[in-house]
Every structure is written in structure tokens, then in C-alpha cells.
Amino acid sequence: MTVTIKKQTIAKSSISKKQQLIIQAALKVFSLYGLTGASMEQIAQEADMSKSNLFYYFDSKDELYTAVLSHVLTEWLAPLNDIQLEQEPAQALSHYIDVKYQLSKKMPEASKLYALEIIQGAPHLTKILKGPLKALVKEKTAIIDAWIAAGKMKPISALHLIFHIWAVTQHYSDFAAQIEAVSGKSLSNKVFAQDAKATTLQLLVESLVIKEETVA
């Protein structure tokens, strides 16, 4: 599934690049202040452009916010799309968990913004969550169920397994302040990140896979 960013009517490569610059600046501001607290002035300043130039590309703050969320979802859901039936479960799930940890390290602002939107009831994402995301999760849970039926995994709720992977991997960005306060470390610490990933693999992959496979 691909969640597309709403395109503006003028289709030029330079404008597309400018939109991406604006989206990245808006992501930083929205993740700090939310939709209500953020202003177009702050976003324009972060993007190093005038407010009038910002409105040339996006008609309103709501439109820009939706574009940012769409961008976040595109990045966030792409790894789940990679899970395919022909793969071995250990390989597929290990890769998915690895990429999710990479995203939590590289895109903490995106994770926090997405979490903030969900906490508020997902007013800008309801259609996507109930439509494309629900369909994608249904497709991937069917694959996990097929692995279980084939004797490759122990019986487990495929849906809750995916929820657990989301919860664990995104915890390291959404609750980074708590983790750093308790451990004094974050995913930027290589050993700490490796331990976090290894623990997740042991709990959510190695304990479930029946056929002996190499877990990356």
C-alpha cells in the first residue's frame, strides 16, 4: 500500500523538491507543538522561506498537516509491505523489526507526530486507518496465519503480533525521554540498540518460529 501525498496543481520537479523541504520543516514543528500549537509562521521560518511562499504550495495549515501525516505513513508502512508469503517467517519478521528500529532511530519526530495524532482520535487519518491500513494489516495477518498453518510458527494471534511489534519498536522514539532517563542511553548507542533489537527478536520471533532458521 502506498499513501500518497496530495500533489499541487503545478507539476514541476523544483516544486516537488520544495514541497519536500516544507514537509520536513513542518514535521519538525508539528511534532513539537501539534496542529493547534504550530503556526505557519514557525514552519516558514524553519523552512527558511516567507509565509506567502509557503502558502503558494499549501493553501492551509490543515492541508500541510495532512500532507505531513501522509508522508509519515508512507515511510512507516513501507516495511510492512515487504512481508511476503514466499519468505520464511524468521527472515521476514526479523527484517521488519530491524527496519522498524531503524525508523525509530532516524525518524523520532515522525513517530511522535503520528502518536500524537492517534492519541487525539486520529481526526485526519481515520479514513486511511480504516481503509488502506486495515486492508494492509489484514493481508499481512493472513500471511502469518498461513505460516502457522504450514507448521512454521507456533499458534498466535497474528494481529496482536503486529501490534506488539509496533508497540515495542516505536516505544524507543515515542518514549525516548523516559528511556534515556532510566538507562542513560538511546538508540544512538550502538550496543544499546543491538540489545533492544536482540531482545525483541528473542521475544517475538525466535520464540515463535518452529522451523530452524537463521535469524538476522
Rank of each mutant, 00 (worst) to 15 (best):
I22D: 06
L203R: 12
E212I: 13
T199V: 04
S111V: 08
T214W: 09
N189K: 03
V3S: 08
E63C: 09
V72I: 15
T126K: 12
I119F: 09
L69A: 02
Q8L: 15
A193E: 09
A115N: 04
D48A: 14
S104Q: 05
S13L: 10
L103C: 06
A198W: 04
G121I: 07
W76R: 14
H171I: 00
S173G: 05
I210P: 00
Q202R: 12
V182Y: 05
Q8P: 07
F192W: 06
I22N: 05
S70M: 00
K7F: 01
A198N: 14
K28D: 11
A142I: 06
V99C: 06
T214L: 14
Q178H: 11
I210C: 07
A150W: 00
H95E: 09
I165E: 03
K140Y: 10
V205P: 01
Q84K: 14
I119E: 13
E139R: 11
M107V: 03
E206R: 08
T2Y: 07
E86W: 01
A167R: 09
L103I: 13
S14A: 15
I43M: 11
S104Y: 04
A11E: 12
L32W: 02
I43L: 10
A146I: 02
L54R: 08
I128H: 07
K7L: 14
A196K: 08
G184R: 03
I23N: 01
A150R: 14
M107F: 06
S104G: 12
H95V: 02
A150F: 00
T74A: 13
V72H: 12
Q42R: 14
K152L: 11
L64K: 04
I10A: 08
S186A: 04
Y56S: 09
F163H: 11
K18P: 00
S70D: 15
T36V: 10
P155M: 08
S60H: 12
N189Y: 12
T214E: 13
T9K: 12
I97N: 03
A216H: 08
P79S: 12
L54M: 10
S13Y: 06
K18W: 09
A47S: 11
Y57F: 15
I210A: 10
T4K: 14
A146P: 04
V209T: 05
S94F: 01
A193T: 01
I43P: 05
L201M: 07
K7C: 11
T200K: 02
A47F: 05
S207P: 03
K12P: 02
Q194G: 01
E117D: 11
T9F: 10
K190A: 14
A110K: 03
A90R: 01
M40F: 03
T169Y: 02
K106M: 10
L103P: 02
L27Y: 02
I179C: 03
L69N: 04
H71S: 13
V72A: 03
L54W: 04
